[in-house]
């Protein structure tokens, strides 16, 4: 747990927002950006304690953006835990997203941070839902005018009888309409 907090602290320290630019206007009507991500994670069981499982995930969601620092994500998560066999899971996550760097004409310099709450239902378990928190610092690469390729580090911690830490990465596409 101490290591997790240290990692989170380091990320927040590295992610000091840059001064806002003129392009960071607040919009009452949010900009909507659907996105899809997929990724891999290493699963550290708290009870063992050991990294004894891995996960694949597929996320489909949408981002509502009022300002580069103020936007919210809602996503559906589907995936599988690999533990000898495959144990599918599905769930939802909701959180905040902040672009850590101001809007820019440059395609390479959007860094962001996503954080929020998630709920997972895992096939083959007695408990039907597990709640957790997640922190995903990432980098968005603008491929075309509306299309961003995003890659992020994935840190999540779920509670309950399957309390565990998941560390991995996700990559995907966000379409900024």
């Amino acid at each position: 747990m101490k290591r997790l907090l240290a990692v989170i602290g380091l990320m927040l320290a590295l992610a000091v927002p840059a001064p806002a630019s003129a392009s960071d206007d607040f919009s009452i009507l949010p900009l909507v950006s659907p996105y899809f991500r997929t990724g891999f994670g290493a699963y550290r069981s708290t009870a063992c304690p050991c990294f004894d499982r891995s996960t694949w995930n597929f996320d489909l969601g949408a981002n509502l953006r009022w300002h580069r620092l103020i936007s919210v994500d809602g996503e559906y998560r589907y995936g599988t835990i690999l533990l000898g066999g495959n144990f599918p899971f599905s769930g939802y996550a909701f959180g905040l997203r902040s672009a850590l760097t101001p809007q820019s004409e440059r395609w390479w310099d959007e860094f962001y941070l996503r954080a929020g709450l998630g709920w997972l239902s895992i096939m083959g378990t007695r408990d039907r839902s597990y709640m957790g928190v997640y922190l995903h610092p990432g980098w968005a690469y603008q491929v075309f005018s509306l299309v961003h390729l995003e890659t992020e580090l994935s840190l999540s911690y779920y509670f309950g009888d399957m309390e565990h830490l998941n560390v991995g990465f996700r990559t995907g596409v966000r379409i900024g309409f």
Binding site: S45, T46, A47, C48, I81, L83, F87, I122, G124, T125, R126, D127, D161, M162, E163
Partner: peptide, 15 residues
């Protein structure tokens, strides 16, 4: 052994 979350319970028991 019909529930995979029992592995975590068994780990706790072994501990």
């Amino acid at each position: 052994f019909g529930f995979i979350d029992d592995l975590d319970r068994l780990d706790t028991a072994i501990n």
